[in-house]
C-alpha cells in the first residue's frame, strides 16, 4: 500500500506541476539578488548572506516557505489523504481489497510525510544549486559570527530541512484527522491551514504568551538555531517534543475516528 501510494503520486500529473512550482520558488531568492544586481544589502536573515555564499540560499528559502507555503503544502497533502479516496470512490474498493483500516491510516500518514520530506529535499537542493552557481558554495558565517566549513554547513542544512519537516508532522497529523472526517479534500485541507494560521497568529500575540509553548507552530523557526555556534538546542528539543505530541495525539484520533467510521462514500 505504501509503495502504491508513492507510485500513484509519481504518476499524477499534478505532482510534476508542483515539482516545477517548488523549483521556481526555490530559485526565487537567488534570482531576486541576481536580477537586482545584489542591491545594497538588507532583507531577511540569511537573504543578504547569499551574496557571500550560495549555502545561505536554502536557508533563506526555508524562511520564506515556513509561514505560508509549507503549511499550505502540508494541508493540501494531508487534507486529501483519505478524503480524496472517499470522494473519488476508491476508498471503499481499497477497504474491500482488503486494506485494513489501521493500515490505511498509518500508510497514508507515512506517505504524506515521505512526500513532504522529498519536497523539502528538492527545494533545498534546487536552492543550493542555484545559489552555488550564482555565488559559489563558500563557508557559511553563522548567526553568532563564527564560520562553518562547506561540508559542516551542508550537514546542518540537511538537518535543518529534516527538522522543519518534523515540525509540520503534527500539522500533517491534524490534516489526516480532518481527512478521516469528511469527503471533501479541500475542506479538510482548508481547516488544517486555518489551524496553522491560527497557531501562528496566537504565537504572535503576547496576551496569550502562556499558551505559546503549546502551539504547534511555536518552534518552527528553531531550525535557525542550528546555525549558531554552539548550536542552541533548547528550542529544537522543545520543537521535537511538540511535534511528537501533536503527531501521536492526532494520528491516534485519526485511527479512532476511521476505525469506527461508516464508509458510505
Amino acid at each position: 500500500m505504501y509503495v502504491v501510494e508513492l507510485r500513484k503520486t509519481l504518476r499524477r500529473p499534478r505532482t510534476w506541476v508542483l515539482v516545477g512550482l517548488l523549483a521556481a520558488f526555490a530559485i526565487l531568492p537567488v534570482a531576486v539578488l541576481a536580477i537586482s544586481g545584489g542591491g545594497n544589502g538588507g532583507g531577511p536573515t540569511f537573504f543578504d548572506l547569499i551574496r557571500e555564499t550560495g549555502l545561505a540560499a536554502p536557508l533563506a528559502v526555508m524562511l520564506f516557505i515556513q509561514p505560508v507555503v509549507l503549511p499550505l503544502g502540508v494541508s493540501l497533502l494531508a487534507g486529501e489523504a483519505i478524503a480524496l479516496e472517499a470522494s473519488g470512490g476508491t476508498l471503499r474498493y481499497l477497504l474491500v481489497r482488503p486494506v485494513g483500516r489501521v493500515r490505511l491510516v498509518v500508510t497514508k500518514y507515512a506517505a504524506v510525510m515521505t512526500l513532504l520530506l522529498a519536497a523539502m529535499a528538492w527545494v533545498l537542493a534546487v536552492a543550493m544549486v542555484a545559489g552555488g552557481i550564482a555565488y559559489g558554495l563558500h563557508p557559511l558565517p553563522t548567526l553568532s559570527g563564527a564560520t562553518l566549513g562547506t561540508g559542516t554547513a551542508l550537514g546542518r542544512i540537511a538537518a535543518a530541512g529534516l527538522y522543519l519537516v518534523t515540525q509540520v508532522a503534527g500539522l500533517a497529523a491534524i490534516g489526516l484527522f480532518c481527512s478521516t472526517l469528511t469527503e471533501s479534500a479541500i475542506g479538510a485541507g482548508a481547516i488544517t491551514l486555518l489551524v496553522s494560521i491560527a497557531s501562528q497568529i496566537l504565537d504572535a500575540l503576547s496576551q496569550v504568551a502562556v499558551i505559546h509553548p503549546y502551539l504547534p507552530s511555536h518552534e518552527w523557526l528553531a531550525f535557525a538555531d542550528l546555525f549558531r555556534s554552539p548550536v542552541a538546542w533548547t528550542g529544537i528539543e522543545h520543537g521535537l517534543w511538540l511535534a511528537l505530541g501533536y503527531t501521536v495525539v492526532f494520528v491516534g484520533l485519526s485511527l479512532l475516528a476511521f476505525t469506527r467510521k461508516d464508509v458510505t462514500s
Partner: peptide, 21 residues
C-alpha cells in the same frame, strides 16, 4: 465503480492488486 482517474485502466487494476494482501 471508483478509480484513480489519472491512471490507466490497467494501472488501476495493478495498483489495487498491489495495495494489500
Amino acid at each position: 465503480p471508483g478509480f484513480w482517474r489519472y491512471l490507466s485502466g490497467r494501472k488501476n487494476l495493478e495498483y489495487f492488486a498491489r495495495a494489500a494482501g
